[in-house]
Amino acid sequence: MKQTVFLAPDIECGGCASAIQKALGKVEGISDVKVDIAAKTVAVAHDLVLVSVEAIVTRLEHAGFPAVAQ
């Protein structure tokens, strides 16, 4: 498993965190998602074979949270 941290500046509240958890939580290859509202980051533990960093960025964008890997 690899952990990647994404900066998502549009995170503002618990509702945002819930939306991100929902968007990423059931993706095959992602084992953990932690949203830090204050830091506006999303830490994702994932298997690089099953889900790439680019695929996670795409999922976040589709959920309304443009993000970049740090």
Rank of each mutant, 00 (worst) to 15 (best):
M1W: 07
M1P: 11
K2P: 02
K2Q: 10
Q3I: 15
T4W: 00
T4E: 00
T4S: 02
V5D: 09
F6V: 04
L7G: 13
A8M: 10
P9E: 11
P9F: 06
D10T: 15
D10F: 06
D10Q: 13
E12L: 02
E12K: 06
E12G: 01
C13V: 09
C13P: 06
C13I: 03
G14K: 06
G14E: 11
G15N: 13
G15C: 11
G15W: 06
C16Y: 00
S18I: 01
A19E: 02
I20M: 06
I20H: 07
I20Q: 10
I20L: 12
Q21K: 12
Q21G: 05
Q21Y: 10
Q21E: 14
K22R: 14
K22N: 12
A23E: 06
L24M: 08
L24I: 02
L24E: 03
L24Y: 01
G25Q: 12
G25M: 13
K26M: 03
K26L: 02
K26C: 01
V27N: 07
V27E: 14
V27C: 12
E28S: 13
E28Y: 02
G29Y: 04
G29D: 07
I30K: 07
I30H: 02
S31C: 04
S31P: 04
D32K: 15
D32G: 13
V33N: 00
V33Q: 00
K34Q: 12
D36C: 06
D36H: 09
D36G: 10
I37Y: 02
I37K: 00
I37Q: 03
A38D: 15
A38S: 15
A38E: 15
A38V: 13
A38K: 15
A39E: 14
K40S: 08
K40Q: 12
T41R: 07
V42M: 04
V42I: 12
A43S: 15
A43R: 07
A43T: 15
V44N: 04
V44C: 08
V44M: 05
V44S: 04
V44R: 06
H46F: 00
H46A: 01
H46G: 01
H46W: 01
D47S: 12
L48G: 10
L48R: 09
L48N: 07
L48V: 13
V49Y: 05
V49G: 11
V49I: 13
V49D: 15
L50C: 07
V51K: 06
V51Q: 10
V51M: 06
V51G: 04
S52H: 09
S52P: 11
S52K: 07
S52G: 10
V53M: 02
E54K: 15
E54N: 13
A55V: 05
A55F: 01
I56H: 03
I56N: 05
I56V: 11
I56A: 05
I56M: 09
I56F: 03
V57H: 04
V57Q: 15
V57L: 12
V57S: 11
T58W: 03
T58G: 09
R59W: 02
L60D: 04
L60T: 06
L60F: 01
L60H: 04
L60E: 08
L60M: 13
E61V: 10
H62M: 10
H62A: 13
A63H: 04
A63S: 03
G64Y: 00
F65W: 09
F65P: 01
F65M: 05
F65K: 09
P66T: 09
P66V: 08
A67L: 04
A67T: 07
V68S: 13
A69L: 03
A69T: 03
A69D: 08
Q70K: 10
Q70N: 08
Q70H: 10
